Simulated assay, not measured.
Amino acid sequence: MNILIIGLGVIGTTYGYVFSKAGHHVEHYIRKSSKNYNIKDLKVELLDGRVNSKGENVQDNYIVNKTTNQQQYDLIFVSVPSGKIESVLEELNKEKITGPILLGCGIWEKRSYIEEIMKDKEWILGYPVAGGNITDGTLYCCVFNNFMLETKEKTNISNYDDIKELFNQSQIKLEQPYDMLEWIWLHMAINAGVVSVAGRYGDINDVSSSAEGLMNSTKKLAEAVRSIRETSKIVESRGVTLKHYNNELFAYKLPTIISSPIMKRMFATNILTRKIMTLHSNLSDLLYVCQCVYDEGKKNKIEAPIFYNNYEMVQANFNEK
């Protein structure tokens, strides 16, 4: 497939690397005004969980192919904060670049909003199971063996089966939740519950050390579980039936005296899961997720004292610095 990755962010670049290693042609659309425009290649430090569940360390080099004169692609991969999707669409329209679009983003807006801005496009919702950062010319990342993708019945995309085969060739299994957008909301809410606790008891400006502090403490993990119970109620207030996502919420329904030691042991033994927690360093993205969930909870008058208090303290500490 001919694939276009929007930008040179961590998620898009990680999957761009994976797709290219599977034999597909990958290009990046990078604005000329971007600080990344002149980057020609990146060193890759990958913890690869696609074959080995504990992760396999891979060192490689990734050539960054920028868009040429091609205007039609088999897939356009977009992973940006949801507030920037419209600006991406404006760029694609300006450059007359077309093709089915995979939105692999944290989207808090309702489906009607997405349908409106994507009304002239073929598109599908997905969510990556990967993470990392790009520092000093090196892509530090980890990738799991699964990717969340909307069901064929809920999308207007014409080459759904080709996209399934792309992930299959890349040794990535597709998982399809009851409703992709609702699943994204719930995932964002879970992240907000975790981030608010990690930031409250750690240094919000040092995401990695805050994550380490959380994963090493049964007390903090117990509070994160209680916070997630609250943020999941905020998602429920949007009309989501939580029983459709019992698998995702099962661990957080257990008594914290059981769940927090299990989570601590899991983080201690599962290197891949621990790595993705410490590599995510995009502070503005993390705070955006928390703010979306916080505003929704307040608007819908949902009782969530642990989450609200922790996030307010995180914001106060962040604003002081």
Rank of each mutant, 00 (worst) to 15 (best):
I3C: 00
G9Y: 00
G12I: 09
Y15H: 11
Y17V: 08
F19Y: 11
H24R: 13
V26Y: 07
Y29Q: 10
R31C: 12
S34F: 03
N38C: 13
K43Q: 14
V58Y: 06
Y62I: 07
Y73A: 00
I76E: 02
S79C: 13
V80W: 08
E95G: 04
I97R: 06
T98H: 03
W108S: 05
K121H: 14
W123L: 03
W123R: 01
I134K: 07
T135I: 14
L139I: 12
Y140D: 10
C141G: 05
E150T: 08
E153I: 15
K154Y: 12
N156R: 14
D162R: 10
L166G: 01
F167N: 09
E175A: 13
Q176D: 07
M180N: 12
L186T: 03
S196E: 00
V207L: 09
S209T: 15
E212Q: 12
G213Q: 06
L214K: 02
L214S: 03
L214W: 01
V240F: 02
L242F: 06
Y252R: 04
S259E: 05
I262D: 04
A268D: 12
T269S: 10
H280K: 09
S281E: 13
S281Y: 04
L283C: 07
Y288M: 13
E296D: 11
I302Y: 13
A304W: 01
Y308S: 03
N309L: 06
N310W: 13
E312D: 15
E312W: 06
F318T: 08
